[in-house]
Amino acid sequence: MTGLDLRPAAERVVVVTGASRGAGKGIALALGETGATVYVTGRSRNEGDAPLPGTVGATAEEIDRRGGRGVPVICDHSDDVQVAALFDRIRQEHGLVDVLVNNAYVVPDHLADKGPFWEKPLALQDQFDVGLRSTYVASHHAAPLLVASGAGLVVNTSSFGGGCYMHGPAYGAVKAGVDKMAHDMAVDFRPHDVAVVSIWMGLLRTERTAAAFDADPERYGAMTALAESPEFTGRVIAALADAPERMTWSGQILVGAEIGSALGVTDVDGSVPTSPRGFLGNPTTWNSAVVD
């Protein structure tokens, strides 16, 4: 199979990590709407397991209602054994993965607090485990299955925090790290026609941001109009997976609003999100040198 011979969307096997709620849930729903089989991972089995609403089962059920097949998998992405078991199950059930979305992320308390990093809890380093390291581990276990697909796609969800100061050095290091992983993994995957990109998402209307908006409308009020739905990024990923020229973007950081516009993707309300590049800066560019 080549980039010009892509599997139909309804036959694809997709994995979205960290999809009980937030960006992951929106991405999983949008990809499920194409008819794909979507493995939904997360730690929330029952409502109340986390402070915010959402479970892997609820996301999977909504995928079913939208015409796809949702497969809920309880998986703690800080546990390598559980991650290995996830992909071993997929190997036994399907033998391949067409799309992997690395979205699992620990959002520590006080992440968005103002002030220098040393006045915030040391627990902010948890992002290095589920956020940075988890992206590498999931990609490692998924790699043979992506190669087996013949035309795979890996997406690391990221943000403008990879290029500007945002929420402090721990958050920035994780986002810059998954961006660089996408670039370097793309080098290894290119001979196998597997594309790897990092997508800088805009401000999303998630359960978490909705709570923040309600708690401090003076601080966030003007930002609500700029927010994207969590499903917008999923629509962008679906369009990338369908694009015969997807390998031309492999290894790059893509601004979600910009690549969405290029691929003719609109948000759930029909709007076209605006790129924050003008005030948050440009994505990192990489040197083309390859040192084995």
Rank of each mutant, 00 (worst) to 15 (best):
K175D: 00
R208Y: 08
P217G: 04
G251T: 10
A227R: 07
P116V: 14
L4P: 00
V196M: 06
M201E: 11
F189M: 14
K120C: 01
R45P: 00
A170P: 00
T284W: 10
C75Y: 03
G35N: 09
V174E: 03
P276E: 12
G67A: 12
E11N: 09
G95V: 07
A123R: 12
H77D: 03
A186F: 05
D76R: 04
V130Q: 03
M1G: 07
T17D: 04
D267Q: 08
G48T: 14
F232W: 05
N102D: 05
A227T: 14
G177L: 05
S275N: 07
V236R: 06
G42P: 00
T55K: 06
R65W: 09
Q82A: 14
A225E: 11
E61V: 13
E61G: 03
D76M: 06
D216M: 14
K180W: 02
M247L: 15
G264T: 10
I63N: 02
H110K: 12
G18K: 03
G162I: 12
Y165G: 01
A30M: 07
L280M: 13
V38G: 02
T274D: 03
F128T: 00
G150R: 09
V187E: 01
A123P: 00
A195E: 05
E33F: 09
S159G: 04
P230G: 10
E258I: 09
T248F: 08
V137G: 02
A30T: 11
G221R: 12
F160D: 04
P72H: 10
R190L: 08
E231H: 06
D269H: 06
G278C: 11
T248L: 10
G278V: 13
R65P: 02
E62D: 13
S159Y: 09
P276V: 14
E119T: 05
V40L: 05
K175R: 06
G67D: 07
V272Y: 05
M1S: 09
K25Y: 05
